[in-house]
């Protein structure tokens, strides 16, 4: 083996090391991206859930907005009356507005 052949082997050897490690680098990058994308999706799913529950809470807040005056009626009875009205009128509670509930003798 001549010196020029040795030199050629050296260049080739270093190139092989680079090729293997570059391939590894690309593979790690790809793997990280795929795993990152999955993690992002997983994160988004519970976020949507929390957004939904937040909007429900907002709606609930809208329901409870304002003041309801109760005359000789306890809160439990008032809640039952409101639920019955909603059910009978087929109107969601969120669209109903009660100003006062008064017991009639």
């Amino acid at each position: 083996m001549t010196i020029s052949e040795s030199l050629l082997i050296s260049v080739f050897g270093l190139a092989i090391v680079f090729v293997v490690l570059i391939a590894l680098c690309l593979f790690i990058m790809l793997q990280s991206r795929i795993i990152g994308a999955f993690r992002l999706k997983k994160k988004e799913a519970p976020q949507k859930k929390t957004e939904q529950s937040a909007s429900v809470e907002k709606k609930d807040a809208a329901i409870s907005a304002g003041q309801l005056k109760l005359f000789d009626v306890d809160e439990k009875t008032a809640a039952i009356i409101m639920a019955i009205v909603s059910h009978v009128s087929k109107t969601p509670l969120s669209e109903l507005q009660f100003k006062s509930i008064k017991a009639l003798d």
Binding site: L14, V17, F18, V20, L21, I22, L24, C25, I28, M29, S32
Partner: peptide, 14 residues
Amino acid sequence: IARPTSLFLGAAAQ
């Protein structure tokens, strides 16, 4: 894994 480009340095140092 956090910085895969480190592999280039590992190759150059051979």
